[in-house]
Write a protein that binds this DNA or RNA. Structure first.
Length: 846
RNA sequence: GCCCCCGUAGCCCAAUCGGCAGAGGCAGGCGACUUAAAAUCGCUUCAGUCAGGGUUCGAGUCCCUGCGGGGGCACCA
C-alpha cells in the first residue's frame, strides 16, 4: 500500500481529539442552531463489529455535515448494558455480570475512539448504572399511577432456554425466540404489562407525520404490526344464557349469511358455554378436543391452511338481525386473544368458515352477488314472501358449497332483507346503523397489537419498583426510595430456574410494607431492556442529573432527535416502544412533542459470502480490515458502496480502491505550493468551476443520504485537481489550493484522520471538522453555453451550442435550420414543434 | 393470501421537473515509468435500462400486467 502511513495518523489525531474534545457540546452561550444526531446505542459485546462500524460511519457523516454547516451537534453514545449475554457470561464464569459488562464497555469505547467518531464523550450513559435505571423505575411508577402499567394473568410466550417470558415483538414469525432461537411455548403466568394498546390509534395515525422522513419500509412494518381492522361488534343472544356473545367482524354486510358461530376452544367463553350444557357426552367430547388443541405447539398453530377442527357445544345463538337460530361451535381456527375470541361464521364469504362448514356439513348461504356490477344503477329486485330477492338466472353467482371457493370479492347484497341490492360499503354502513339502532351492535375497531409484556425472570435488569404486601396489595415503592438497586450477586445463584433469581435474594426481597411497616416482599422480576432504550435519547440531555430523568427545558431545546441512525432490525420493537413512551411522556406533560425521532436512516447490513460478517464465522472481519486498510479507507468504502440503506457485499467493494483514492487526495495536499493566503480568484477558472459546482451540489446530496454520490463527486474533483497539477496550471496555482482545501473539508465527513492531516499540511491549525462549509460562488456556477439537443420524433438528430438564455423562437429557428434535422424531416409534414429552451427541441413529423 | 421495496455495462452503482442513458469506482485491455515487479500516472473496451402493453412530442423515470429478487404480516374474523 503506497501513499501514507495511516496507522500513525490515526494515533496522532486520536490523541489530539482526546485532548481538544472538539465535539463536546456546552450549549451555554453557544448561539449556533442545534442539531441532535443519534446512533442507536450498542449492546457492549466487547468488540466493534461491522454492523456498528457501518452505522457509526453513516451517523458520523450526518453529524459532521451539520458541524460543517455551522450547527452545534449533539452526537452522544451510550451502552445498552443490561441484558442476558452479560448474565449468561457471569453464570458461566461464576462472576458478577457487572464485571463482564463494564470491562466490555471499556474495550468497546476504546475501539470506538480509534474509529474516529465525532462523539461528545462527556454524555456517555450506561443503562445498568443505578443512576440510570432509577429513572426506569420512576417511569414505571408514573405509568402505574396512570393505569398504564398493570399485572395480569395470561397466556404468555415462554423461552425455555433463557427461562424467561418474552414480549410478542420478541417472538419471530417462525415461533422462535429472537434472542435464544428456542421454540417459544405458551405458559399461563401473572406478568407486568405496559398498556401500549391504549395508544394503538395514535401510534398508527402518527406514522403519517413521519412519511418521507422514515423509510417507507419501517412505516409499513409498524402499520402491519399494529394491524388495525375496522368493522363492527355484533351481540348474539345465547339460548339459556343471560350474557350475549359479542363477535368482531370486518364484514357486517354479510350478517344475513351467518349460519353458525365459532368460539376459541381455550377461551373462558367456551368453558362457560360447555359448563351450562347438560349433555355429558358433549362436555366430554369438548374436553378431549381442548386437550388436543393445547397439545399442539405454537408453531403448528401458526401454520396457515391447516385442517380446521372443532366440536359442537350443544348451544344455540340467535342472529340479531334475522332472528335465526344458529349452532355454536368451538374450533381451533379461532384465536382466543384476537377480537373477542369468537366469530360469526359466514361460510359463503369467508374461506376459513367455508372450509370448516364443508368439513362439518354446516349450511352455506350466499348473501353477496359478486357478479353484480358494483357501480351504476342497482337493478330493482323482486322480493319473495320471506323478503328474499328473486334473482334473474344470469345473476346467480357460483355456489361456494360446490366450488369450495368462498366469494370474497366486491358485489351487491343478496337475500339480505331491506339491505338487498346495496353495495358492500353501503351495506356495511347501513347494517351497522341498524345494529346501533336496535342495540345489538356497534362500529368497532380491533388491533393485532398486544400490550407490552415487560417483566422478565432474570437478574441483570431494572428491578420492578413494586412491593407486595402481606394482604396481596401492590404497593409502589415511594419515589424517595428509588432506585431499588440490584443486590450483590454474592451467594446468589443466577442460573435460570424459571423464576427470578432475585426472589432468592432473601435480604433483598424481604422489606417492610411502606404503608404500615409489616413484612412484605419486593417484586422479584426485572424489566425488559427495551424499557431502558425507550427514553434514553432524553437522558443524554442531562446524563448526570441526580434529581430528574431529564430536563424538560433541555428537551425543548434539543429534542426530538433530528436524525436517528440504526439497523432495520429495530423497525418494530425498539422504535415502537420509544414512540409509545414518548407519547406517554407527552401526556404526562414532560415533553412537548409526540414523536421521538424526526428522521430515521436505516443502514443495510455488511455481508460477506452472503452472510452477516462476524468473527465467529471466520472469513473477513472488521479488525483485520481496519488493520489492513485503515479506519479512513474502511469508512469511505462503506459510504461509497451504494445507498446507505442497501446491504453491502464486501466482495463487491474495494477498500484497497478507497485507500488508493485517499492516498491520491493526501498527495495533493503535499503538492500544493501556494501559501494559505493565495488569492483563489486568480487561479484556473475551469478548476474553480469544478470546485464550486461540488460545493453547491454536495449539501443536498448529503441531506438526501446520497453519500456514495458525494464521494463520487469528490473523486471527480480530485481527478480534476491532479490534471491541473500535472499537466495544467501546476501545483502553485491558487485554484489548486482552493480545490484541495475543499477536498479536505468534504473528506472530513467520511475519513476524518486523513482529512485532518491534509488540513494541517495546508497550513491550518484549526479542526477541519468544525471549520465550516464554504459557500459556492454563484458567478462560477453560471454556464456560458449549453448543449441543446434537437430531436425529430423523439430521436436526437443534432446538438447545438447555445446561450443558456436563448429565446424559444430563436432556438426553434436554429433547430429548423439544422442540416441534420432537414435531412431527417425530409419531405414529411411537420405537425408539431415542442421547444423547451434552452435544452431541447422536438420536431414531430408525419 | 394481503402489503411494501428493488431489477440500468462482467460487478458495485449515477442519471433534480419526464428531455443527450454514464458521474465515480471495481474488474479487464493498452501504454508510460522500472533491469523487472509492485506502486504511481495516462488512455481505453463494455449496456439501451428484466419482459410486454399504455400515457406522452419525448419514458430508465409515470400507469397497467407479468417475471425475478428482498422484506413485513398472516387460520387476525
Amino acid at each position: 500500500m503506497g501513499g501514507y502511513d495511516f496507522a500513525s495518523l490515526q494515533t496522532k489525531w486520536q490523541a489530539i481529539w482526546e485532548e481538544r474534545q472538539p465535539f463536546t457540546v456546552s450549549d451555554a452561550g453557544d448561539k449556533r442552531p442545534r442539531k441532535y444526531v443519534m446512533d442507536m446505542f450498542s449492546y457492549p459485546s466487547g468488540d466493534l463489529h461491522m454492523g456498528h462500524a457501518e452505522a457509526f460511519a453513516f451517523g458520523d457523516v450526518v453529524a459532521r455535515y451539520w458541524w460543517q454547516q455551522g450547527f452545534q451537534v449533539l452526537h452522544p453514545v451510550g451502552w445498552d448494558s443490561f441484558g442476558l449475554p452479560a448474565e449468561n457470561a457471569a453464570i458461566k464464569r461464576g462472576t458478577d455480570p457487572r464485571e463482564w459488562t463494564y470491562s466490555n464497555i471499556d474495550q468497546q469505547r476504546a475501539a470506538m475512539k480509534a474509529y474516529g467518531v465525532s462523539v461528545d464523550w462527556t454524555r456517555e450513559i450506561h443503562t445498568s448504572d443505578p443512576e440510570y435505571y432509577k429513572w426506569n423505575q420512576w417511569l414505571f411508577l408514573k405509568m402505574y399511577e396512570k393505569g398504564l402499567a398493570y399485572r395480569k394473568d395470561s397466556w404468555v410466550n415462554w423461552d425455555p432456554v433463557d427461562q424467561t417470558v418474552l414480549a410478542n415483538e420478541q417472538v419471530l414469525a417462525d415461533g422462535t425466540s429472537d434472542r435464544s432461537g428456542a421454540v417459544v411455548v405458551k405458559k399461563k403466568l401473572t406478568q407486568w404489562y405496559f398498556k401500549i394498546t391504549d395508544y394503538a390509534d395514535r401510534l398508527l395515525d402518527d406514522l403519517n407525520q413521519l412519511e418521507g422522513r422514515w423509510p417507507s419500509k419501517v412505516l409499513a412494518m409498524q402499520r402491519n404490526w399494529i394491524g388495525r381492522s375496522t368493522g363492527a361488534d355484533v351481540d348474539f343472544v345465547v339460548e339459556g344464557r343471560s350474557e350475549k356473545i359479542t363477535v368482531f367482524t370486518t364484514r357486517p354486510d354479510t350478517l344475513f349469511g351467518v349460519t353458525f358461530m365459532v368460539v376459541a376452544p381455550e377461551s373462558d367463553l367456551a368453558a362457560e358455554l360447555v359448563a351450562g350444557q347438560d349433555d355429558a357426552q358433549i362436555r366430554a367430547v369438548f374436553q378431549d378436543f381442548l386437550t388436543e388443541v393445547q397439545k399442539s405447539s405454537e408453531i403448528e398453530r401458526m401454520t396457515a391452511d391447516r385442517p380446521k377442527n372443532g366440536v359442537f357445544l350443544g348451544r344455540y345463538a340467535k342472529n340479531p338481525i334475522t332472528g335465526e337460530r344458529i349452532p355454536v361451535w368451538a374450533a381451533d381456527y379461532v384465536l382466543p386473544d384476537y377480537g373477542h375470541g369468537a366469530v360469526m361464521a359466514v361460510p359463503a364469504h369467508d374461506q376459513r368458515d367455508l372450509d370448516f362448514a364443508l368439513k362439518y356439513d354446516l349450511p352455506v348461504r350466499v348473501v353477496v352477488d359478486v357478479n353484480a356490477p358494483v357501480t351504476g344503477v342497482i337493478p330493482a329486485l323482486e322480493l319473495d314472501e320471506n323478503g328474499l330477492a328473486i334473482l334473474p338466472d344470469d345473476l346467480e353467482p357460483s355456489n361456494p358449497a360446490e366450488t369450495g371457493e368462498a366469494l370474497t370479492g366486491e358485489g351487491r347484497l343478496l337475500n339480505s332483507g331491506v339491505f338487498t341490492g346495496l353495495s358492500k360499503s353501503t351495506g356495511i354502513k347501513k347494517i351497522i346503523e341498524a345494529l346501533e339502532t336496535s342495540g345489538d351492535g356497534r362500529a368497532a375497531k380491533t388491533y393485532r397489537l398486544r400490550d407490552w409484556l415487560i417483566s422478565r425472570q432474570r437478574f441483570w435488569g431494572t428491578p420492578i419498583p413494586i412491593i407486595h404486601g402481606a394482604d396481596g396489595t401492590e404497593v409502589p415503592v415511594p419515589y424517595d426510595q428509588l432506585p431499588v438497586e440490584l443486590p450483590s450477586t454474592e451467594g446468589l445463584d443466577l442460573k435460570p430456574k424459571g423464576q427470578s433469581p432475585l426472589g432468592a435474594a432473601t435480604d433483598w426481597v424481604s422489606v417492610k410494607d411502606p404503608r404500615d411497616g409489616s413484612d412484605a416482599l419486593r417484586d422479584p422480576d426485572t424489566m425488559d431492556t427495551f424499557v431502558d432504550s425507550s427514553w434514553y435519547y432524553l437522558r443524554y440531555l442531562n446524563p448526570n442529573d441526580p434529581d430528574k430523568a431529564f430536563d424538560p427545558k433541555e428537551a425543548d431545546k434539543w429534542a426530538p432527535v433530528d436524525q436517528y441512525v440504526g439497523g432495520v432490525e429495530h423497525a418494530i420493537l425498539h422504535l415502537l416502544y420509544a414512540r409509545f413512551i414518548t407519547k406517554v411522556l407527552f401526556d404526562l406533560g414532560y415533553v412537548g412533542f409526540t414523536e421521538p425521532f424526526s428522521a430515521l436512516l436505516n443502514q443495510g447490513m455488511v455481508l460477506s459470502g452472503g452472510a452477516k460478517m462476524s468473527k465467529s464465522k471466520g472469513g473477513v472481519n472488521l479488525s483485520d480490515e481496519l488493520a489492513l486498510h485503515g479506519v479512513d479507507a474502511i469508512r469511505l468504502t462503506m459510504a461509497f458502496a451504494g445507498p446507505p440503506e442497501d446491504d453491502i457485499n464486501w466482495e463487491d467493494v474495494s477498500p484497497a480502491g478507497a485507500a488508493k483514492f485517499l492516498a491520491r487526495a493526501y498527495r495533493l495536499a503535499k503538492d500544493v505550493t501556494s501559501a494559505p493566503d493565495a488569492v483563489w480568484s486568480e487561479g484556473d477558472q475551469n478548476l474553480r468551476r469544478v470546485t464550486h459546482r461540488f460545493l453547491s451540489e454536495s449539501p443536498g446530496l448529503v441531506e438526501a443520504f446520497k453519500f456514495n454520490v458525494v464521494v463520487a463527486r469528490l473523486m471527480e474533483l480530485v481527478n480534476a485537481i491532479r490534471k491541473v497539477v500535472d499537466s495544467g496550471a501546476g501545483a502553485a496555482d491558487p485554484a489548486v489550493r482552493e480545490a484541495t482545501e475543499t477536498v479536505a473539508l468534504a473528506l472530513s465527513l467520511f475519513s476524518p484522520f486523513v482529512a485532518s492531516e491534509m488540513w494541517e499540511m495546508l497550513g491550518y491549525d484549526s479542526d477541519v471538522a468544525t471549520y465550516g462549509w464554504r459557500k459556492a460562488d454563484p458567478t462560477l456556477l453560471v454556464e456560458t453555453s449549453i448543449t441543446a439537443i434537437i430531436q425529430v420524433n423523439g430521436k436526437v438528430r443534432d446538438r447545438i451550442e447555445v446561450s443558456p438564455k436563448i429565446a424559444s423562437d430563436e432556438l426553434e429557428k436554429l433547430a429548423r435550420a439544422s442540416e441534420a434535422v432537414i435531412r431527417a424531416v425530409g419531405d414529411k409534414e411537420i405537425v408539431n414543434v415542442i421547444v423547451r429552451a434552452p435544452r431541447v427541441v422536438n420536431i414531430a413529423v408525419r
